[in-house]
Amino acid sequence: MTVAEAIPPVPILELAGLHKSFGSLKVLDGIDLAVRPRELVFVIGPSGSGKSTLLRCCNRLEEPDSGAVIVDGADIMRPGTDLNAVRQKIGMVFQSFNLYPHMTALGNVTLALCKVQGLDREAAELRGRAALAQVGLSDKEASYPNALSGGQQQRVGIARALALGPKIVLFDEPTSALDPELVGSVLAVMRELKAAGMTMVVVSHELAFARAAADRVVFMEGGRIVEQGPPAAIFGNPREARTQAFVSRLSQGHG
């Protein structure tokens, strides 16, 4: 746990005893996880292991059945929580981008700045342009999503999350819907974000990226965290047989 010691100990996001069922199916079965500032936590696990649900519970896009979700010191499960305010602090990037097709790239990035943060158009566009510059898409601000490649669309998605000045960004399989040759541009942006000190939780199958950029890898199965640790330990020398089996299967699949 040498990496963890180097990172300030107060978590920016903390999940405690998180449970979630869909009908009789237990999707999250007692999740405890703390993410410290500047940390990149990488979540892996087989399909149906609850990774995406875990992520979506962090900003209550999915409603947990029980447990605590503590963001920046406050339990957002508490009644009376202003979710829309909390969500400003938690950026989210989606597998299928989910850009608004009727708005330009800049429009996508500035909508919440105008309508939620109450910035006037000029200020919002200033911030929006800065966010687009951060993902290398300054020249695409007037483009509609349908005129952008998948990689560009996902980078606009990242810019949309960054523009709000979040304290943490959640990535839900950000490269799974991309053609292989477009994956690199998105991962490059994520790597830069990490270098700039952004706190991130990433659900993904990009193991090479995890090895290179993650501070901690969390392996989930059956709605529980089976094992977690630095990437070298999880990928090189996992303690649990299930982790080992999953990692070797995934590595083979990705050549």
Binding site: N59, L61, N84, A85, R87, Q88, I90, G91, M92, F94, S96, N98, L99, Y100, P101, H102, L111, A112, K115, V116, Q117, G157, R160, A161, L164
Partner: peptide, 24 residues
């Protein structure tokens, strides 16, 4: 996903409906 993206940026239900969903 359109609802989710908008809500994740802090837009409320009405704002999401008005600015994101209804125009489409």
């Amino acid at each position: 996903g359109q609802w989710e993206a908008a809500r994740s940026t802090g837009l409320g239900f009405g704002a999401t409906l008005g600015y994101v969903v209804l125009p489409q």
